[in-house]
Amino acid sequence: MPPISVAILGAGIFARIAHLPALRKLGDTYELKAIYSRSQSSASELAKTAEDILARPASSFDLYHDAGQNLDALLARTDIQAVIIVLPINQQPSIVLKALEAGKHVISEKPIAPTVKEGVKLIKMYEAHYKDKGLIWRVAENFEAEPGLRAAGKAIADQKIGKVCFWNMQVLNNVETDSMWYNTPWRTVPEYQGGFLLDGGVHSAAALRTVLPSKFTELAGFASLNREHLAPHDTIHAIIRSEDGSHGIFELSFGLPSSPGHDSFRVVGTDGTLDINRYHEKDPETQKDQAFIKVTIKNAKTGQKEEIVERSCGVERELENFAAHLNGHDDGLGTPQGALQDVSVIQAALDSHGRGVDLQHLILSAD
């Protein structure tokens, strides 16, 4: 198939360190034609980074910004098939609709929207006005696409630990004021619920959704702020129940007072346990850190132990799957409905105050 002509909307950190390297890994799958950012300087900086990563002159990427040829001009181009939207959380829903209205296929960064209500509205607009026109919209949730997490989900579906009984996920992060993730204006003073808990926490919710076999039904939890620079909240603790009767503890914090953080996920079944851990190793060629996901499966009945190790490459996989969908092969990855469930988990944990929240009702009542 010929390369998919694509534009990147947004020139921030994740476009630079994740999407451009993923496009390089995918070779001729995509052809990056244009870059949009609010300012000319940020669009130019991303073009320079793309020159290094994609081995093409910066001048080969057409630049659009609000002080010159703007987003409307980019979206009017008939030679661009799809857009990768990597913009601040509050801006994304309107830009998704703008791109769809211009006839572009869309893959937009997580979360789907700042709230469940806005996510539901966005999905309804897509299904009512654009889906039947053949336009494809996917949400880029890289944890859902991680081969290691998908392998863990398959192992559980294959009954390698029997029926799931309970689970525990603990994700503790340290975000200081000098962090590159903190030092962006829209994150420093977030105009959306939860701050980093929404921005980063949907990844953990997506991991739960990818690995566990049954849809969540109810959540009860508490949220708190422990470090003032991470307002409005930096920590949530929740108990979640699923349709199959299993339940677990979800502990998420960006307010750890020191590094390194901690990341663990254990699922206990009737016949054994499954553990998921992340770790880093230096690539022997580049000497750069490479992240890996290790899945350890222990069957208590047979005594058998199995380990699965996969390179962390979720952004690469999500873009690969998006391209496959555009070429007629849909494996169901990155659906807006799945991303909406992730937001519902975070929103419920923020709003629970110890009371049970019906997660299905939270989504249905937002209609």
Rank of each mutant, 00 (worst) to 15 (best):
I240S: 04
L252P: 03
S204D: 12
F265M: 11
L197F: 00
R241Q: 07
V267I: 15
H262D: 06
D271E: 13
F222A: 14
H203W: 00
V267S: 06
L225M: 01
G201S: 05
D244T: 15
I240Q: 07
G245I: 13
A206M: 12
E228S: 12
E218Y: 12
V202M: 04
G201I: 03
R227W: 08
L198P: 08
A205I: 04
G245Q: 13
F216M: 10
L197D: 03
T210N: 05
L225S: 01
A207H: 01
A220Q: 13
S258P: 06
G248N: 05
F222E: 14
V267C: 07
E251S: 14
E218F: 11
G200W: 05
D234A: 06
V211I: 12
P232H: 04
G245W: 10
G248F: 07
E228C: 06
T217P: 04
A223D: 11
R266N: 13
R266E: 13
L208M: 08
L208A: 09
E243A: 14
L256C: 02
E281W: 11
E218K: 14
S214G: 08
D244Q: 15
F265K: 07
V268P: 04
N277H: 13
H229K: 04
G261V: 00
G201K: 04
R227I: 08
I276T: 05
G221A: 06
L256E: 07
P260W: 10
D271A: 10
S264Y: 06
A223S: 14
I239M: 14
A206Q: 12
S259F: 09
N277Y: 15
A205N: 03
G269W: 12
R241S: 12
A220M: 06
D234N: 08
H262L: 11
L230V: 09
H262E: 10
I239A: 15
G248S: 07
H237I: 09
G248T: 04
R266W: 14
I249V: 14
T217K: 09
S259E: 08
I249M: 11
H203I: 00
G245H: 10
E218H: 15
D271Q: 11
T273N: 05
R241L: 09
S258N: 10
F216A: 14
G248E: 05
R227G: 03
G261S: 01
G255M: 08
I239V: 15
E228A: 12
D244K: 15
L198M: 10
S214Q: 08
S264P: 01
A223P: 02
E228I: 06
D199E: 15
Y279E: 01
S242V: 09
R227A: 07
S264W: 05
L256R: 04
L219S: 01
L230A: 10
F222N: 15
F250L: 05
V202P: 01
S259V: 08
A231M: 02
G201A: 04
T273M: 04
P257E: 02
P257D: 02
H233K: 14
S246L: 09
V211C: 00
K215A: 13
